[in-house]
Design a protein around this nucleic acid. Sequence first.
DNA 1: ATTCCTGGTTGATCGAGATCAAGTAATGAT
DNA 2: ATCATTACTTGATCTCGATCAACCAGGAAT
Lengths: 252, 252
Amino acid sequence: MPDTTADKQRSMLNEARCQTCSLSSLCLPLALEFPDMDQFDAIIRRRTPLKKGEALFLQDVPFTSLYAVRSGSLKQVTTEGCGEDQLTNFYLPSELVGLDGIDEARYPGSVIALETTTVCEIPFDRLDSLSQEIPELRGQLFRTMSKELRDDRRMMRLLSRKTADQRLASFLVSLSERFRRRGYSPYSFRLSMSRADIGNYLGLAVETVSRILNRFQRQTLVAVSGREVHILDLDSLSRVADEQGVDSPCAH
Amino acid sequence: MPDTTADKQRSMLNEARCQTCSLSSLCLPLALEFPDMDQFDAIIRRRTPLKKGEALFLQDVPFTSLYAVRSGSLKQVTTEGCGEDQLTNFYLPSELVGLDGIDEARYPGSVIALETTTVCEIPFDRLDSLSQEIPELRGQLFRTMSKELRDDRRMMRLLSRKTADQRLASFLVSLSERFRRRGYSPYSFRLSMSRADIGNYLGLAVETVSRILNRFQRQTLVAVSGREVHILDLDSLSRVADEQGVDSPCAH
DNA sequence: ATTCCTGGTTGATCGAGATCAAGTAATGAT
DNA sequence: ATCATTACTTGATCTCGATCAACCAGGAAT
């Protein structure tokens, strides 16, 4: 029996089904048993890879689907009024894109690939119906949104209370943590985003990002070469990330 | 038949059931028809009013319920590590408190009444079950969380790009908007929070809040007397809230 | 009425980080 | 290989808002 082109394409992607996907323990279906996972798998649409710079969707386009990142990475950018863009999030494999579009039925920001990136498209109406039948799926969806709320609050804290040093350190530690959870090295990784992206995300000027990375390097906290990062002292870096003023030693 | 004390208490609250609650068009059950609303109403627990300064719940306490604000207002405060508190949200009537606690099964911040405040307790496990049977309820829950995500992103933009003036203006305009939606005057209202709370929330020092409110007053944008606010020129205030640098006239 | 205390205002100074400016390295197109 | 463009770095200056300090106003307690 000859393969259809769809079969071919599917077989080319090395993890074309949730059941065999290496991310399944981190992704939406993480709480599902096999029969349920089949159902979930059935509503997913695999998309052809995005090239660097391509948009997954543009701001204000009608909301239809969530997207789970399969490989690569993306950034979310919101252009408000006439102002400068605001980069509100980076997305790594297994993370869910588009949750903030449900309410107004359009995406509140554009989501752009930072490198070659593949995603699974999850039509939201199908997901909603399925979440009626599968309580574990519904629960996971609630938890995912709830976690994103928590992360947002942490980001607010970073933006309103932390110094530039603390922001950069937090950013690196957080990336390290996310890579670790995904099975990559928490100590060596490549930044898929530019310094400008980092600055925009952290509320800092590019120059400041550059300078502080440089200083971290001189302090042998990290070794940075272009976008290649080696974390040399994760403990100290974490300490920098949420140190108080030098005068308040935290524990009393 | 003599009233039970529970009956008495219920009758004392002028809007003791969702069906007759004046907030029902803004609150969670807004999408529900009558039979469904009865079911929803049945899982709600009314709580005795909180006095000013009392906690609805404390940080890190196990998550059990969401709370819908019925009257009054609250603030959410997160104490991270040894650092200063971060005020991450104010809650007004009809708004839903506690969504960020679902994921980790405990509340990520304390929620404190800013004045005498009444809330409806919604046990989350009951709500989850009910959302299985009532798709409209489930949808409303998703939308509510999604909206909160969007609002958070707006807050990040405020914290990372806006000047102190823009922050204060945004804050006042946003409050005005929220009061309007709830049927109160968008031009005259009383701040239930202190200057310190406002500063903490907006990432500004108390002194800055005070100074800028004063300047807005001199510019006849508002009239402020203690916590009493009269908005005199909402249009200009909105323009201040998201103006660009004076040099970029936005439309080209 | 007096004291205390918290919340708010006003003034003076200082510093972290933005902005401006210039230069260098990397990337991609012809 | 050459040029053009974008990404990144480094230095000098300036500014917004924090911080420090003093003071004022209104409630609550005595």
